[in-house]
Design a protein around this nucleic acid. Sequence first.
RNA 1: GGCCCCAUCGUCUAUCGGUUAGGACAUCGGGCUUUCAUCCCGAAAGGCAGAGUUCGACUCUCUGUGGGGUCACCA
Length: 438
Amino acid sequence: MNQNKVRTRFAPSPTGFLHIGGLRTALYAYLLAKHEGGDFILRIEDTDQKREVEGATEALQETLKKFGLIWDEFYKQSERLEKYKSAAEKLVRESYAFYCNCKPKNAKVEGFSKELRDPCRDKKLTSGAIKLRVPDGQIVRYHDFVHKKEISWKTDEVYDATLLKSDGFPTYHLAVVVDDTDMKISHIIRGHDWLPSTPIHLLVFDYLVSKRPEIGHLTDILSTETGKKLSKRRDSVFVEQFLEEGYLSEALLNFVLLLGWAPKNNKEMFTLTEMVKSFDINGFQDANPKFFRDKLDWFNGQYIRQLKVGDLNSKFQTLNSKFKALKTETQIEITKLVKDRISKLTDINTLAKFFWETPEVDKSLLGNNYKLHLAKAIEAIENDKDLMEVVKENNFKTGDFFMDLRIAITGSKFTPPINESIEILGKDETLKRLKKVI
RNA sequence: GGCCCCAUCGUCUAUCGGUUAGGACAUCGGGCUUUCAUCCCGAAAGGCAGAGUUCGACUCUCUGUGGGGUCACCA
């Protein structure tokens, strides 16, 4: 194998559905590899048995596939336990690590003051959890390829992190080093939340292997409302949720691409293939972007408009059973009318609802002359007469006449073109609705 | 609070010492139009602050301020 081959990985833990940030990380890892003709690896970090969610791994895979982010290799950490154990024991033997019998501290209860050096580090125990013996007075540093700068820490500020838990499972800190080494990962690309624990990984890399991969930390995606990192509690973050809301995977991917990365020429519309071709490792952003929904909607509208009518139509079919029950020609006609008017697929549920459901008409929306307008319209439609003729003959104001017609037939002031809609609805149904209102 | 990262229009960003600081979304105005959209045209909108380096700083350095992240036998 080529020693210099670019190999990246996306390494989610199977604790739930893929979220937006994860999609972006996976995309960047994919692009980084594929731009150089390298490999993209999917690795499931399932070393915390307590947090694992049934079926999450499969769900993650399905979602990734929907975006075309296909992996070349697949691994599960739970199937590699021996590797971590022997690596940890090796560190103990070489006194880079030690056994510890302290009972685990509860998460985040001890507040701000923290004992960095573990009381067990010199006890020479022979069983228990294995922790890293962090040296004093050193500097650990690396060059971050996202930020394009050197980042460093004093080891005096790094704590004796746990590497192997007492249940024999590794922590992330150990597993990531062992795996990225074994799997010949050339570039680690991960979220910014990993930055603070990077010195631990750096130390383990240095103690365990001779060279370490390139490392880059992505920005966090911030919520427009709160200005804080997107959170599952406050914001809608799950990729599947966006898909269900009527966003196209292509649009979502394109939008997410530009949250934290930009090409030199500021090009905006990208297919996956174009992304691979244009990807440039120097295009990463340093500052945290905000998730601006309006722009996503715009992208989605653009992608909807690019769709062939038939393709859009079948998406509507899977989305709405009442739409699907319509005659095929009718569906196609509706799709054509709606295509330029929606930004999300689910918009047909409201915009085109009147095609399959008799609307509630709020008569207060109608103009003063509505009775005359509708009477003349009924007369014309019954005789297959052009409605524009009616307007001319009676000296109606064109806008007013059609607006009354529109409201009577659809129940809304904002609709697809009314003439075409009448055509689709059919003479009988249209007449029925007009007579009901008049 | 310690440590770390960050700072160009409201938002995503281009610029990498010399520009009238460019584009896109959103906003506003106009055109097209029987509504709403699409589409086209136009406008408004930005270098966090203060020092320093330099002939010259959005760009380099420092300080301040502001924002974010993180501090588990979770990832």
